[in-house]
Design a protein around this nucleic acid. Structure first.
Length: 430
RNA sequence: GGAGGGGUUCCCGAGUGGCCAAAGGGAUCAGACUGUAAAUCUGACGCGAAAGCUUCGGUGGUUCGAAUCCACCUCCCUCCA
């Protein structure tokens, strides 16, 4: 059945490279196996870049294997140099420890901790923190050849490129991660490490070390980097990174992100980010190709992924807002509906008449709709600013008191400001 | 420790005394066209409604005037020891 897993992954395009390809399918087929994937705390939340590996763990678990999610309490203190253009700043131990906590919790929601192949979260700080330098150098470092390490593609650009460089600290990262694999092999019988394609060098390092230290034969599997057809970076928008934490990226914004996926990417993303079968996705693609006009792929993608990350409630909230703003006429909603939208996560700001910003440009940049007043000016020129559906006329400065009068409010206290086609903000009278 | 090269606005990268808020590209935002897609075209892109204000690693200095010259400091890179 697991070779079925591999062929499904292959059909999804989720396999980039495999170490031990000849025997991996057999190994997976004979009995439930343990595998791991590492997540380093580089922020207080994972972002959608980590979603592919996280979901990969789940795919293996659904196929009957046991996933370990490793949180890099130790490696997060060092910083992975793989394919990074420059050295990064070190974060303080207490900051990293705090992030570790958050990641543990976050990763946990995607894998199942019940049943026979229950998942486990481990932290590599547990086995590195007590190790002294000499032991590390003699027992671990001795197995690594510098000649070999500097050959790795992942650090080559740092070593060869003029104007950059790599510290010993970051260079050592690979050894730490390799040691993780050998430890998990020893104590958890973990025989497979998965990761993004940038992790190939680190993974093969771990495979070599495990063989040298324990004579164990272990496997590695990497997933392709998520790339967009237009070549721009996946997972970033004007607002910045798309986080998995609902407090950092609301389910609504998250949902909108997927809904805005390009046609060229949407079916690939369905294969990457959902558990819909490859056949089902092919059907959707086929149906979209037949249909005139707007395809359904984005809708399905947004529904599926939002459900996975934010649950049924988060999805429902995101859909309610989307429905109200983009499908219906938002300014025909009743007061209860508007309250609900605010609760659902539509960006909302109460207006206190005493401390309201005097100009519209200032107000909109204060609430984060735009990053500078210039954008508002630009939008005004294009008649792209609307309050409750009515375009705002004129050029800045525009008096906010005139814009937000109770006469033009919905139900006496609501104003929906729209800037451009997609940005909405709800203001309420206090 | 020695010798040399470098730190420019989100990123890359021009700019070597006034014409510089600083070329060009990318990213981003808005408009048109569309389907909340792509491509294309248009506009914006340090802050400010404007007057104006604040930027070119840091601090001082020279000058009527500095991103550009000088001094010191700091960080990075290359080679040598």
């Amino acid at each position: 059945m697991s070779s079925a897993l591999l062929s499904d992954l292959r059909a999804r395009g989720l396999i980039f490279q495999i170490a031990g390809e000849d025997t991996l399918a057999d190994w997976l087929d004979t009995e439930p196996r343990t595998l791991y994937c590492g997540f380093d705390p580089t922020a207080d939340s994972l972002h959608i870049g980590s979603l592919v590996p996280v979901l990969m763990l789940r795919r293996f678990q659904l196929a009957g294997h046991r996933p370990l999610a490793l949180v890099g309490g130790a490696t997060g203190l060092i910083g992975d140099p793989s394919f990074k253009a420059s050295e990064r700043n070190l974060n303080t131990p207490d900051v990293v420890a705090n992030w570790v906590n958050k990641l543990q919790h976050q990763v946990s929601q995607f894998i199942d901790f019940e049943g026979e192949n229950s998942a486990k979260v481990v932290n590599n700080l547990d086995w590195t923190t007590g190790m002294d330098v000499l032991t590390f150098l003699r027992d671990v470092g001795k197995h690594f050849s510098i000649n070999n390490m500097i050959q790795k593609e992942s650090v080559k650009q740092r070593i060869e490129r003029e104007g950059s460089g790599i510290s010993f600290t970051e260079f050592t990262y690979m050894i730490l991660q390799s040691y993780d694999f050998s430890e998990l092999y020893l104590h958890h019988d973990c025989g497979l490490q998965i990761g993004g394609s940038d992790q190939w060098g680190n993974i093969t390092g771990g495979i070599d070390l495990t063989r040298r230290l324990h004579g164990g034969q272990v496997f590695g599997l990497t997933m392709p980097l998520v790339e967009k057809a237009d070549g721009t970076k996946f997972g970033k928008t004007e607002t910045g990174t798309i986080w998995l934490d609902a407090h950092k990226t609301s389910p609504y914004s998250f949902y909108q992100f997927w809904l805005n996926t390009s046609d060229k990417d949407v079916y690939k993303f369905l294969r990457y980010f959902t558990f819909l079968s490859v056949e089902k996705i092919a059907e959707i693609e086929e149906a979209d190709a037949q249909r005139e006009g707007r395809p359904e792929g984005q809708q399905i993608l947004a529904d599926e992924v939002t459900q996975l990350v934010h649950g049924a409630e988060g999805l429902a909230a995101a859909q309610r807002i989307t429905q109200a703003l983009f499908v219906g006429e938002a300014y025909t909603l009743g007061p209860d509906d508007l309250e609900q939208l605010a609760l659902d996560g539509l960006p909302t700001t109460p207006l206190k008449s005493s401390e309201i910003a005097p100009t519209l440009t200032q107000l909109l940049s204060d609430v984060g709709m735009v990053t500078s007043g210039k954008q508002v000016k630009d939008a005004l020129k294009n008649r792209a600013v609307f309050i409750n559906g009515v375009p705002v006329e004129g050029a800045p400065p525009i008096d906010t008191a005139l814009c937000f009068r109770s006469e033009n409010a919905l139900h006496g206290k609501y104003w929906i400001v729209r800037l451009g086609k997609k940005k909405y903000h709800l203001f309420t009278a206090e």
